[in-house]
Nucleic acid binder design. Structure first.
Lengths: 246, 246
DNA sequence: TAAATTGTGTCGGATAGCGAACAAAACATT
DNA sequence: AATGTTTTGTTCGCTATCCGACACAATTTA
């Protein structure tokens, strides 16, 4: 399987080969835990499909998603920056696949290769700035706007118009009650923007769903696009898209 | 004036001299804007006192603070990681002083010196993880808990038991109405934890104020402390505390 | 001293989302 | 077809916070 991870694609053939040679392709089954708060993880992941949620859990069990990572980035990037224990959890929200690499190997590459470091830091920047936008969004915007934003972001990330997720899990991501999600998702469905049944949400009218989302969607999309544009540009320069991946 | 910025202190004398030689000591007057959303800033700042708020502003004018930076870090760190335009604003929330350095110079040092890069990335990690915690806190915790958390964080950052800030600005930081701040601050005052008058908040009983804050305070404090411990350790190794700063 | 500005207190009506409990579908398993 | 599990729908009282409006107090400026 070729590494259809944008970050890997953007690397020069040498750097990419180096990382790929030290990676193992693995499946990302639903709910698989990729790292746990305050524990040093053994591996990082370059997703090639699917979606991993980064979640903060409170002592009382309440949770809220602060970001997610798909094929545009790397799971575990923040662990490379310093010694701190990371207070977030990460698990697979929509199943897929990834290239799995030991944190030690990745950290070595991060420190020794300027190119690899730059690409990872670009992704760190995108992730961190997205978290900042979500931090304010969580405070200032209503459930319905945030649900619409989440659906749009997930669609951008997975390129699929059907998202497999229950209202129960959506509530945990949005930091709301399941019943609140039922209400606001029902409103979006009655408006004809989406359609859902038992854990399968289909986006019917993207354009109008965007009008239901808060502006944060556009801000985050812009961050994502500049990263992608950058990555695609680098990939082209490196001939990745022509030469194939390994 | 010696650079009493912890990040600078933690550097080897050579690296510190290099950065200090390219810096200018400046005052940080109240409300001074350090950078603006979607604009490439010309300078970064190593605060030696005072406190700078990092704020996300929405199109309707609503605002919420996502983090702040004091003498433990550097303002503008996220601009070093990649090309993206940063969607946050930054301004001086409590007056102080800083060493001001051109972003170009700092970026050069960031790229060429492994030591400088490592220290800055540690600070980036601390800032980003704090933002993640605040993102969830903004969603899951109540105004009074978040106000208590903010006051404690600000005191840790400034080492002063009197904070100069109005309820109006506190509301903008917490993403609430000013009247809500009046109510919850009034409750904290009646409990005897704090005392305030016209923009001056005095913390009377830190221990009990901590019980009024949400757990996020402890999580963030832990991040801050590990950074500080690390920095203090490096400073000792480098002899900074013995030799003085320049 | 007067006037203007800034910061705080309060009040009452409105509302989004919580919390809990229950009901009813849709699906899986046998 | 029967049964159990998962997912979704609904109701209703309740509370934190919003929202607007206004009064008042403290401080600065004229």
């Amino acid at each position: 399987m070729s590494p259809e991870n944008f970050l890997l694609f953007a690397l020069s053939p040498e750097s990419r080969k180096f990382l790929v040679s030290r990676s193992t392709p693995v499946a990302l089954p639903l709910r698989k835990v990729l790292y746990v708060a305050n524990e040093t993880p053994t591996h990082a992941y370059f997703p090639t499909s699917g979606l991993a949620s980064i979640v903060t859990s409170m002592v009382d069990g309440a949770t809220a998603e602060v970001n997610f990572v798909g094929r545009e980035g790397v799971v575990g990037a923040f662990h490379l920056l310093g010694p701190a224990e990371v207070p977030t959890n990460c698990f697979v929200q929509m199943e897929g696949a990834a290239l799995k690499i030991s944190i030690v190997d990745l950290k070595m590459a991060f420190e020794e290769s300027e190119e690899i470091r730059q690409r990872i830091l670009e992704n760190v920047q995108e992730q961190a700035l997205t978290v900042a936008q979500i931090a304010a969004c969580n405070r200032l915007h209503e459930s319905q706007e945030r649900l619409a934003r989440w659906l749009l972001m997930a669609q951008d990330c997975t390129q699929s118009d059907v998202l497999n997720i229950t209202q129960e899990f959506l509530a945990e991501m949005l930091g709301s009650r399941r019943t609140t999600v039922t209400v606001v998702a029902g409103a979006l469905q009655r408006s004809g923007y989406i359609e859902y049944r038992r854990g399968h949400i289909k986006i019917l009218d993207r354009k109008r769903l965007e009008t239901a989302a808060c502006d944060c969607y556009r801000v985050i999309k812009h961050l994502y696009d500049s990263l992608y544009k950058d990555v695609a540009g680098a990939a082209l320069r490196n001939g990745a898209l022509r030469n194939g991946a390994h």
